[in-house]
Design a protein around this nucleic acid. Structure first.
Lengths: 347, 347
DNA sequence: TTGTTATATGTTAACGATAACATTTCTACT
DNA sequence: AGTAGAAATGTTATCGTTAACATATAACAA
């Protein structure tokens, strides 16, 4: 792959030194204009493609960025990747994409490979589900340029781009409490070792506490990140507490909410009449559900852009600031929370 | 990025030659077991990561594959990428992902960069919309390993993985004709320079001809690939031919169909009562639409797997066969075609 | 003409790893 | 002890490009 023509070949044919060819093709000064012309033409006709591998070995830059995401099917991530792509492309970098499939082992391996590949920087949304920050700590201390997005690992010297999960989660919970007067509210939560799992649970609790609503621990259940795990968690909740069901459910993300809606309907109850439900993400499907899902709209594309910009800055600047960047969300009110379509508003 | 420890550093510390270190870390024979141990330990404690850039320069292999897709938001492609990822990961390769955004210029640039990067092979679904095969012809003749998927460019020496677009399109059109007795059928087609655009139109025509149904050229309109272009094309059709509307529409893919449904409903007509519609893809949203969309289910994940397998074979084998691989589709009957939910069956 | 700058080009070494060949150090056996 | 042969280690050159330094040619002034 790549052409097999090298500087040397061109040099031999034209009877000049490889260095002159290099200079000519990089349009440096100190090369006779006629020589340049000759070299450029010959390079083109011979189908020369510069070998970036060799160039990288010398320059110690690969103009390459590694992206690690935990899921590629959850529509949120492709949209983030689109944002990243756009920025990165315009800055002359290439993307290595790796999908860790929610497995931290795989994430670690991917990162090792990416580093061996000498990527200039890493954009990661971690699948980490236990408190094993040592891995990241080590590579960041070793000088790796890392920016986390969505699922952040904080206080280890890397910047992070995400939404304000805690506040957003509080807001949507308060919508349930203040607009609909629900007080029996459940939470389908994420793994507590993942930042969004923690933060969104905290936001839920903040809302409950702020409104002085007692918290029923039986109604706070671990539900993973996907449709199937959401379905299962909701189904168990319905089974185990059939005598005392919540009026509303706050799901940690839309796929989970989608699974939960299935479970509720299959259980013979209806949404939102028997149980209202809200999500978090604003998945591409959410407006199409029956009922349409009330959720927190997360600007995925923008998260990608911001993360990529921050990473490139981190790579290129002398002494980059470590930042926690928050991009604003908005409530996307639809009808799964109990709002009728004419009272729908956004906040 | 990457550690800055090299073989040489380790060698100096241990007072052996770099070669011995190389041999030890690659677990070659002819290195004393004790020395190996010493070297491995030191390498670990110094945080050594082999520099693949240097390795690649010597071996002329990067263990890297470039993927070029035309859209990343159309859910079909992330799913294909997941299939690719799985295969590629298990074979020890890494993925470079590039999104060409339906722009051929961008696709070309991406491929140039990827080749300069010396990827071992290329997986591409082309955004090509004019007859400019010269570009691919040249690089394939130059020895590049390329496998096309979904949107193929044929007869230029590269393998290709896709569904049987023509036959599938014919089948779903015949469903409209034979099961529902529609004869006034429109087609929202794709660019004719893209293989799927041509093939799916052909399949539509095959069905019409096979059933002896006259074709109304006004009802065959170019509709791009996306929701917005589908909406626009359908809207224009409705406006321009309000006096003589089709009873059914065959859209070249689901996003187009989704846009078209919006247009029809906004126009004040209902689906499928006034106009029935079918798509092609089986997008993640299609079962959630109102009405749920009848479509051709395309096994995206499998297409990805097959394409990746074929590429790796093409890279690694001596004298790889150029193949056209077709993966089977199935009709996914839902109700947008006029089937009532109890008569839904698959074929 | 001679010397002095520019300008154009060439040479060498380096990036980090490894293949190919060369050398040293063991082991084992007469 | 002496030596063949295996085992362990070292040296050199290479992959393709470029930085840093060196040299050759041209252009110009005195």
């Amino acid at each position: 792959m790549g052409s097999n023509v090298t500087l040397k070949h061109i040099a031999e044919v034209l009877d000049v030194s490889a260095m002159t060819v290099s200079r000519a093709l990089n349009d440096r000064d100190n090369v006779d204009e006629k020589t340049k012309q000759r070299i450029r033409e010959k390079a083109k006709s011979m189908g020369y493609t510069p070998n970036r591998v060799a160039k990288s070995l010398v320059s110690r830059k690969t103009h390459t960025i590694g992206v690690v995401i935990p899921e590629i099917t959850h529509a949120f991530f492709p949209e983030v990747v689109r944002g990243i792509e756009e920025v990165v492309y315009n800055s002359g970098y290439q993307l290595f994409l790796t999908n860790a499939n929610e497995q931290f082992e795989r994430e670690k391996e991917a990162i090792e490979t990416l580093r061996a590949q000498r990527v200039d920087g890493l954009l990661v949304s971690s699948s980490l589900t236990r408190e094993d920050y040592a891995f990241y700590k080590k590579i960041i201390e070793g000088g790796a340029k890392v920016v986390f997005f969505d699922r952040c690992i904080e206080n280890i010297g890397a910047s992070c781009v995400s939404v304000n999960d805690r506040e957003s989660s509080q807001k949507i919970t308060e919508h349930l409490i203040l607009e609909h007067n629900y007080s029996k509210i459940a939470h389908l939560s994420g793994p507590q070792k993942v930042s969004i799992g923690r933060e969104r649970l905290q936001g839920f609790l903040d809302a409950m506490n702020a409104q002085d609503i007692p918290i029923n621990k039986d109604w706070i259940v671990q539900a993973g990140f996907r449709e199937d795990t959401g379905y299962e968690a909701m189904w168990n909740l319905l089974q185990d507490h059939a005598d005392n069901l919540p009026e509303a459910v706050v799901a940690l993300n839309d796929p989970t909410a989608i699974g939960a809606i299935d479970a509720i309907q299959e259980f013979g109850l209806s949404v939102p009449e028997d149980i209202a439900i809200v999500g978090f993400t604003d998945d591409i499907r959410s407006s199409l559900l029956d009922p349409p899902l009330t959720t927190v709209h997360q600007p995925a594309y923008e998260i990608g852009e911001k993360a990529a910009e921050k990473l490139i800055q981190t790579i290129e600047e002398e002494d980059p600031e470590v930042e926690k960047i928050e991009v604003p969300t908005r409530l996307q009110i639809r009808s799964s929370c109990g709002c009728s379509s004419d009272q729908i508003h956004t906040d």
